[in-house]
């Protein structure tokens, strides 16, 4: 392969070359080809089976951008975002409470987490909706007074049910994040005269975010799917709308596939967002940031082009 060596007749006029680059034949991974073929075959047969089934696939594109479906998608998104906001802020609050030296606040947080993690969300949702059995009125003195049933709209129920439950899970994630920050950081901040709350807000929480964000991304995706439970309290989010349309249009299964496709699209979008948020909070944690997928693709294309020439 290396003809260069024979060519070097005049050692005086050749530039001093470094060690020769290695050009070895890479190991062939035959197993990979075989498994890829099997996987494609299995996938193809599944697709075939579905295409032969008694499903009217044409109904899906017809309704994909239906106004009611889009409205449901919007409501699902809104529920996810708002419930997660309640969850994240509640979770940070609960985590700080649990780590507090005050035994009263830390036990309250412990009890909250114990209760909300220990009961199913679906049950919590239904209970919130039916709390009118306990409180007939909601009475905030001169500010507000109404029947429970008209105060507890499906939206409010959904937000409270999903958000408060999420806060309990987020609390544990946030607690792990806060504990992961070196104690020297708190100490340095206190030594500069910063108060407890400023130390938390400016020094500890931003560093804890690096640990908190990845599992939170997971929680967002979970939440997006969990919002479908809200269909039981008649809130017209994506699944509810899809089921309603399915009933009236005579294509119930098709509409479920449609909903599944929308959920898949939404979770994919969130995953991309998560990637960039993680990058943001990783700043300062390593000497150089890992390249984004786009940068990677660009680099790969360039290096391929380089090898081809």
């Amino acid at each position: 392969m290396t003809v260069d060596i024979d060519k070097t007749t005049g050692p005086a006029d050749t530039p001093p070359a470094g060690p020769e680059a290695i050009k070895a034949i890479p190991v062939r991974h035959y197993g990979r080809y075989v498994s890829a073929v099997i996987a494609i075959a299995v996938f193809a047969s599944i697709v075939y089976a579905f295409s032969q089934g008694k499903i009217n696939w044409g109904a899906i594109p017809d309704y994909f951008f239906n106004d009611r479906i889009l409205g449901g998608v919007g409501k699902t998104l809104m529920l996810t975002v708002l419930a997660m906001l309640i969850g994240v802020f509640g979770g940070i609050l609960l985590a700080v409470m649990r780590l507090s030296k005050n035994p009263v606040t830390s036990s309250i947080a412990w009890f909250y987490i114990w209760f909300f993690r220990g009961t199913p969300v679906l049950v919590q949702l239904i209970v919130w909706f039916n709390l009118g059995l306990v409180f007939e009125y909601i009475n905030l003195g001169p500010i507000y007074k109404d029947y429970w049933s008209s105060f507890m709209t499906p939206l409010l129920t959904a937000l409270l049910g999903l958000g408060l439950n999420e806060a309990a899970y987020m609390a544990e994630i946030c607690r792990a994040g806060l504990l992961a920050v070196d104690e020297g950081q708190t100490e340095a901040s206190h030594a500069l005269g910063m108060s407890h709350s400023k130390t938390l807000r400016r020094i500890v929480i931003p560093q804890a975010m690096r640990v908190i964000v990845p599992p939170t991304g997971n929680e967002v995706i979970n939440m997006l799917k969990t919002t479908s439970l809200v269909s039981v309290i008649q809130y017209s989010e994506l699944l509810r709308v899809a089921q309603d349309i399915g009933q009236t249009s005579g294509a119930p299964a098709e509409m479920l596939f449609l909903a599944a496709a929308w959920y898949l699209i939404l979770t994919s979008i969130f995953s991309v967002g998560q990637y960039y948020i993680e990058r943001y909070y990783a700043r300062g944690s390593s000497r150089t940031l890992a390249p984004t997928p786009f940068q990677k693709i660009k680099a790969n294309v360039l290096s391929l082009a380089g090898r081809r020439q």
Partner: peptide, 18 residues
Amino acid sequence: LKRRDIGMVFQRFNLFPH
């Protein structure tokens, strides 16, 4: 308030990494 007037330098620096 009193710590404002006392600077402290640590063995392990403890700079804010973010």
